[in-house]
């Protein structure tokens, strides 16, 4: 891909004749109008939102400048901390589970088995479904007298209160594992298929067993994939909304950051406050991404 780009660029730059340039620029200007409006909107919104975060704007009354008041309130807002804790908790239980099960699945799917295509499609299907459909179905499955509890009782176990204060976040994590693991497996599978088969052959000649091969060849060569998954999943989790909004546990036990921003902005109309929180969220995502990129030098292996 990269060499292609370089090639195209060098071809592009050389044979262009002078008289086309101005014409090109005119066409470029014309064809870029929609995109230009789009980027302008996004950049100006980003700045606008930042300015708004220093006001007490509530849509109805005129906004007043309140300085860093919103940010100070945020730091003392129990619900903000609750949402942060919920997010961190979800991060810690859901992402390792997704990574491990996804990797195991990918290894299974990377073999010459009958019906691999069927499995891949099945595992992947929930990724295409709306969170609303998934949350509604799982909400019923999780009911106190719902299917899952009937199943547990049938097995001689006791009922689980899936959506009570203590279990609700775990239940959402299970649902998200169910819906997302196929996608993670697919990403790992793509990584596995990039491992040159000669590596395995050579190591077999050297007498390595399958476990050693996995540890010494597969895992190191999958680190870039793992890194990609880790980054994108963390960013996704920090912006969780649908699951939490649709399956609210009692006492804010599943409140997420974006859900709190949403309710503050569109139900409480505290636009300034919500903007401030969204900026804190971006800051967190930004820092985590930077830290991840810094840390990757320690464990991500880019040379094949």
């Amino acid at each position: 891909m990269r060499s292609n780009r370089v090639l195209a660029n060098s071809r592009l730059n050389k044979p262009v004749k002078k008289k086309w340039i101005s014409q090109d620029a005119a066409w470029a200007f014309l064809l870029l109008i929609p995109l230009f409006i789009g980027i302008l909107l996004i950049y100006s919104s980003t700045i606008f939102g930042f300015v708004m975060s220093f006001t007490n704007w509530d849509i109805v009354r005129k906004a007043e400048w309140v300085g860093i008041e919103n940010y100070r309130t945020l730091a003392e807002d129990e619900l903000v901390w609750k949402a942060m804790r919920n997010t961190l908790y979800f991060l810690i239980i859901a992402i390792p589970a997704k990574l491990i099960i996804g990797l195991a699945l990918a290894v299974l799917l990377n073999q010459k088995l009958k019906g691999v295509n069927f499995f891949r499609l099945t595992y992947f299907f929930p990724t295409a479904c709306s969170v609303v459909a998934i949350a509604l179905v799982w909400g019923y499955l999780y009911g106190v007298d719902g299917f899952l509890n009937t199943l547990l009782q049938g097995l001689g176990l006791s009922k689980v209160y899936w959506m009570d204060e203590h279990n609700a976040m775990n239940s959402i994590a299970i649902m998200s594992l169910w819906g997302g693991v196929g996608y993670i497996a697919l990403l790992f599978l793509a990584g596995l298929q990039n491992v040159p088969p000669e590596y395995y052959e050579a190591s077999r000649v050297d007498g390595a067993n399958r476990f050693q091969q996995f540890r010494m060849i597969t895992l190191p060569l999958l680190t870039p994939t793992t890194f990609f998954i880790l980054i994108t999943q963390m960013i996704t989790v920090f912006q969780m909304f649908g699951e939490n909004y649709l399956m609210p546990g009692p006492l804010n036990s599943t409140l997420s950051i974006v859900q709190y921003i949403f309710t503050e902005a569109f139900q409480g109309f505290r636009m300034g406050y919500a903007s401030a929180l969204s900026y804190i969220l971006i800051l967190i995502i930004f820092i985590i991404t930077i830290v991840q990129f810094k840390l990757q030098k320690k464990w991500v292996n880019y040379d094949l």
Binding site: S45, G49, I235, I261, I282
Partner: peptide, 8 residues
Amino acid sequence: PGVVTMIP
């Protein structure tokens, strides 16, 4: 991220 531009 989309959250930033949501309100504006």
